[in-house]
Write a protein that binds this DNA or RNA. Structure first.
Length: 657
RNA sequence: GCUGCCGUAGCUCAGUGGUAGAGCACUCCCUUGGUAAGGGAGAGGUCGACAGUUCAAUCCUGUCCGGCAGCACCA
């Protein structure tokens, strides 16, 4: 006999070989009817599985959170059946559950389009209605191979071959249709329910490999209940509203146009915001970094020395004289990185060990040729400004410098309102320069630092390893932020480099009078200013904190009687250091409020006859319906205080104590 | 780069094998109105570019450019 323990800690004995369904039926008919799966010692399994050992058992019903993955997985199978029923000759491949739904990849000569989705969805509902039971069979490998080969399912044959020898080849049937699958599944297709929707169609490479055939992938999502699906779809709409490309247009921050793919036209307001970020960074660097500026165009030979011409050429732009008469055919590269330039500055003049660590920063504009399909608003561009720096130091100083940088990065993110981030260590890639010994040393130091970062944060900062993802010259930390639409963006990076300084022959004079090669740490905090600005925009959905808002206050009049007073209010705010605009147009106050609210201006000061007489203002904050009336003086003081950047506020608080 | 979809006024979009329309925005006029659109008039387009089919192309076909989604890439 085996002993099964139930969630209420009661337990009963059963004959070995009993199925989950039989256990459920033994408890109650209604439970058996509601059951979609079971969990044995916490692990999901088919209801029809037999149980041969002592275990904790839970009967999983459709409203159990764990059922969601099953619903989606089964929906993927139902979709595959629907597709093969509607479009014979289509091959099935894989169909996993993903974060917000599921997909299934198909091979078909004519790819699917979104216009096919309604028909597939309708067929899916039909299959769900049929409510065929899911049944599992274990097949000998050869039979599986043969059956799929005879059906023309070549991709499935490959999948069968990829299953490790010690694992069963499992086949799940639903009516006449069957698929190779790891399982588990619910009891029948009817349990998928009707809260599903096919969302999009896209190409995807077989096995994620761009040298392999492109399949057509259909994405869908499914929920236990209809209102959950509706809530999800609503959430997607809301997320779209905070897309930085849309906000950029609505707030008049920047634009893109055809002639400059992947390059930004910054408008006045966007550039103001951009410069606020730069100003913040400059304040944070003051005292410990030298800000420098290296050339945009440098001879190709420099990039050959650095290794970029060899390893990075596909991503570089090249420039030469455009003159038709000239015989100067010298080739220059537009810099994709600042490091070679900074090494030239380091090399200019003798450096002593006393100069180290030498920290060199640049808000350098770099150009990188990105694949056209990668471009995405401000998030992925071909020309961007890095808040870049290179620290030249000794190997002994490296760990301390990494920690120093880590603190700078994390405090910066917090100042911009981010609380959640991940630090990942990327290790040596296949394409790289430098000896394995150098890589061993660099990775060892970085590994220690990563552990210390995790420990010091008390578990608040998640860390991880990205094997093989390092730069060609050294391992790196990647600092990743998650944006409001749930996308992860790599912003900061710290890269340890035991190679480039040596390649360029950079050295310092050590205590013993010998020439030594310094190591170099590449680091960026927000990374690309462009991308970071985009992330910040989405994070706040355009409702920026006052210190970042391009226009902080609009002074709007109700009647022209208040124009003179409004002008004096604006002038006073400007003197107090605020960025303001005046709206004395011949429009109703409703109209003005609406327009400035849509432009996401944080504060509107309304001035009418009454305010002009009392020398007061009426404050309306973005997103609030209520207003507050206060004296001009009080309002100015409060706004000036609120507009203080977080680093200055911190410095002020420290000075006061 | 790959697959699919898309490209019409500054923005959002409609439309047709016989060279174009709406709303908002813009300009002017009226309106001085107390917290998310007051009224009227006007101006504005090489229908992404280039080729082809056709008596005739914004519309059909092809190539290219750009955008969107996903994949691949992301130092």
């Amino acid at each position: 006999m085996i002993r099964l323990t139930f969630p209420d800690n009661s337990s009963r004995e059963f004959a070995p070989g009993i199925t989950g369904r039989e256990v459920a039926e033994g408890i109650s008919k209604s439970l058996a009817k509601k059951a979609v799966a079971m969990a044995l010692d916490g692990e999901l399994a088919d209801l029809s599985d037999t149980i041969d050992r002592d275990a904790r058992i839970e009967i999983v019903t459709r409203d159990d959170p764990r059922a969601l993955g099953l619903i989606r997985h089964d929906a993927a199978h139902v979709m595959a059946e629907a597709v093969q029923e509607l479009y014979p000759g289509t091959q099935v491949t894989i169909g996993p559950v993903i974060e917000n739904g599921f997909f299934y990849d198909f091979h078909r000569n004519q790819p699917f389009t979104t216009e096919d989705l309604p028909a597939i969805e309708a067929k899916m509902r039909e299959i769900v209605k049929r409510n065929a039971a899911f049944t599992k069979e274990v097949w000998p490998r050869d039979r599986a191979r043969e059956v799929f080969r005879d059906k023309g399912e070549n991709f499935k044959v490959e999948l069968v071959d990829a299953i490790p020898e010690d694992q069963d080849v499992k086949i799940y049937r639903q009516g006449d249709w069957f698929d190779l699958c790891r399982g588990p599944h619910m009891a029948s297709t009817g349990q998928v329910g009707d809260a599903f929707k096919l969302t999009k169609v896209a190409g995807a490479y077989w096995r994620g490999d761009s040298t392999k055939p492109m399949l057509t992938r259909i994405y869908g999502t499914a929920f236990a209940k209809g209102d959950e699906l509706a809530a999800y779809l609503h959430m997607l709409e809301e997320a779209e509203k905070r897309d930085h490309r849309r906000l950029g247009r609505e707030m008049d921050l920047f634009h893109f146009q055809e002639e400059g793919p992947g390059t930004v036209f910054w408008h006045g307001k966007g550039w103001t915001m951009f410069q606020q970020i730069v100003a913040y960074m400059r304040r944070r660097l003051r005292g410990s970094y030298d800000e420098v500026n290296a050339p945009q165009l440098l001879d190709k030979s420099l990039w050959e020395t650095s290794g970029h011409w060899n390893w990075f050429r596909e991503n570089m732009f090249m420039a030469r004289s455009a003159g038709e008469e000239t015989d100067d055919d010298r080739v220059f590269a537009i810099k994709p990185m600042n490091c070679p330039g900074h090494i030239q500055i380091f090399k200019h003049g003798l450096k002593s060990y006393r100069d180290l660590p030498l920290r060199m920063a640049e808000f350098g504009i770099v150009h990188r040729y990105e694949p056209s399909g990668a471009l995405h608003g401000l998030m992925r561009v071909r020309a961007f400004t890095q808040d870049d720096a290179h620290v030249f130091c000794t190997e002994d100083q490296m760990a301390a410098e990494c920690h120093r940088i880590n603190e700078l990065i994390l405090s910066t993110y917090r100042d911009f309102g981010f609380e959640e981030f991940v630090v990942k260590l990327s290790t040596r890639p296949e394409k790289r320069v430098g000896s394995d010994e150098a890589w061993d040393r660099a990775e060892a130091i970085m590994g220690d630092v990563l552990r210390e970062i995790a420990e010091q944060s008390g578990g608040k900062i998640r860390t991880g390893i990205n094997p093989g993802e390092g730069a060609f010259y050294g391992p790196k930390f990647e600092y990743v932020l998650r944006d409001a639409i749930g996308r992860d963006w790599q912003c900061g990076t710290t890269q340890v480099d035991l190679n480039l300084p040596g390649r360029f022959g950079a050295f310092y004079v050590d205590t013993d009078g010998e020439k030594k090669t310094p190591v170099m740490i590449h680091r960026a905090i927000v990374g690309s200013l462009e991308r970071f600005l985009g992330v910040v925009l989405e994070h706040y959905a355009g409702h920026l904190p006052l210190w970042l808002a391009p226009v902080q206050v609009v002074v709007a009049t109700i009647t022209s009687d208040a124009d003179d007073f409004a002008r004096s209010v604006q002038a006073g705010l400007e003197v107090a250091g605020l960025r303001t605009a005046l709206d004395t147009r011949n429009e109703k106050i409703n109209y003005k409020i609406r327009e400035h609210s849509l432009a996401k201006v944080p504060v509107i000061l309304v001035c009418g006859k009454r305010e002009a007489e009392e020398r007061s203002v009426n404050i309306r904050r973005l997103g609030e319906k209520d207003q507050a009336s206060m004296s001009l003086e009080t309002a100015m003081k409060a706004l000036a205080d609120e507009a203080m950047p977080p680093d200055l506020r911190r410095a002020g608080a420290k000075a006061a104590t």
